[in-house]
Simulated scan of single mutants.
Amino acid sequence: MAEGNYVKADLTLLGKDHIHAYQDTDGEVGYLWNGVPTLLLTTVGRRTGARRTTALIFARDGDDYLVVASTGGSPRDPDWYLNLSANPAVEIQVRAQHLQVVARTASDDEKPRLWKIVTDVWPNYDLYQSRTTRRIPVVVLSPA
Rank of each mutant, 00 (worst) to 15 (best):
V94P: 10
A59G: 14
L114T: 08
L84W: 01
T43G: 07
L14E: 13
I57S: 15
W115R: 13
M1K: 07
V94F: 10
N34H: 00
V36R: 14
D64W: 11
P78D: 09
L14D: 08
Y65I: 13
I57K: 08
V36P: 03
R95D: 02
T42I: 11
G4K: 13
V90Y: 03
P75C: 04
T132E: 09
Y22T: 00
R113F: 10
D126G: 11
E28L: 06
G49L: 04
E28F: 03
V139Y: 06
V139D: 05
A89K: 14
A59R: 00
W115V: 08
L84P: 01
N83D: 14
G45C: 05
T105D: 01
T105P: 04
A21H: 06
G15W: 13
S74Q: 12
L82F: 03
G49C: 07
G35P: 06
R131K: 08
Y65N: 08
S74V: 03
I57T: 15
T132L: 05
K16Q: 13
V140G: 01
A69G: 15
F58D: 01
D77H: 15
A144C: 08
G72L: 07
L82P: 00
F58K: 07
S74C: 01
E28Q: 10
R76Q: 15
V101K: 00
G27W: 00
I92K: 08
L66H: 09
D79V: 15
I57G: 12
T105W: 09
N83P: 05
T48P: 01
V139R: 05
P143R: 00
K8S: 07
A55H: 06
D26M: 00
R95P: 00
V121C: 10
D109Y: 05
G73S: 12
R46C: 04
G27P: 00
A96Q: 14
M1D: 12
L99F: 02
V44D: 08
A55E: 14
S70P: 02
T105K: 11
W122R: 13
A59K: 03
L56F: 10
Y125N: 05
Y125I: 05
V139E: 06
T119Q: 08
T42P: 05
H20Q: 14
